[in-house]
Design a binder for these strands. Sequence first.
DNA 1: AACAATACGGAACGCGGTTCCGCTTAGCAA
DNA 2: TTGCTAAGCGGAACCGCGTTCCGTATTGTT
Lengths: 196, 196
Amino acid sequence: MNGSDEGAGHAARSKRADARRNEETLLDAAAAVFVTSGVEAPVRDIAAKAGVGMGTIYRHFPTRADLIIAVYRHQVEACAEAGPALLETSATPHAALGQWINLFVDFLVTKHGLAAVLQSDNAGFDTLHAYFLDRLVPVCTQLLDAAASSGEIRSDLDAYELMRGVGNLCIGAEHDSRYDARRLVELLIAGLRRPH
Amino acid sequence: MNGSDEGAGHAARSKRADARRNEETLLDAAAAVFVTSGVEAPVRDIAAKAGVGMGTIYRHFPTRADLIIAVYRHQVEACAEAGPALLETSATPHAALGQWINLFVDFLVTKHGLAAVLQSDNAGFDTLHAYFLDRLVPVCTQLLDAAASSGEIRSDLDAYELMRGVGNLCIGAEHDSRYDARRLVELLIAGLRRPH
DNA sequence: AACAATACGGAACGCGGTTCCGCTTAGCAA
DNA sequence: TTGCTAAGCGGAACCGCGTTCCGTATTGTT
């Protein structure tokens, strides 16, 4: 919808070849650094890892959010697309919801510091926040609606709130062995069940 | 147990009068700044508000955690003490647990940024983390045990995990009107209910 | 009044994000 | 091939913030 291709699909050539190469390099470097040092790693580290100067990184990715989005876009897309698929293949909508949330939690928990940054109120991360929300809330809404109309869950919680709650529960899960975000999220989903 | 009085209760004189005055002033200033700018307000702001230099603030409160603890100690104590009280006055242990968690959530949600800082993995905040945990986890354990042995809830979640989860759910609740931490915490507690 | 001990203020340092500008290089045209 | 220009690059420099350090001021005691 934006970013890598220019839309009209013909004369999409505006970037110089070295620029595109550098963007690639930066994405790889950022991905690597994110794994080892988390998504809040110093910008200089990423630039160093990529072997480029500070200017280059800021030109390609004006905010850290842009970089994070670029690095994880594929996985977020995959998660978003898994929603409808799960709805079809799962026994019940509630099961689909549970599995999809699990997917999301796994994603967040394995990305060092991402959950924290997602909920950060720092301006500059709000485009990141917005991207995740835009992409995933509709999917979650669909699953939630399906589960609600099948009568399995209460319907007084909207997808936005659920997603934020799940995201929050994932914060800090990566370096605290006593804290299992998955379990708490399960509990939360269990709490959604309509009392019967 | 530490801090303001020297324990043995006789020759408790070690601090100079101006030092004690400054400590008071700093606490008041910090409390005020925390309200307006959150618990992550620049140290300089607090020093300025108190009308003291940087050295003074660091001498009295070597880490930000110390300052935060000092400012909120009374309220944390009150919360801790409310636990056993609620257990006696409430209809069921589960109800007591719910009310106590509510108390905790209200406390966190009204302290701008405190929940976030509580879960922060920054070294330097771990004494804050530890203080909250030391003080509140035993209380929560007591409530949880009571509710578990009365058969109201499943017993496979320990107090530590619950407290962390609740704390996490409170992050960012203060400036997002679409997100109601209390509701999600309720859901979590509902999820604790033993299926019957 | 003099003198330690204690405490104070704020300059200075380090780190990390961000900007800015002089230099380099890709891509094109003659 | 050679020149030219604009796109792109590197990294020094700047800013804000946490933290340290030390010369100075204050307290309380003799």
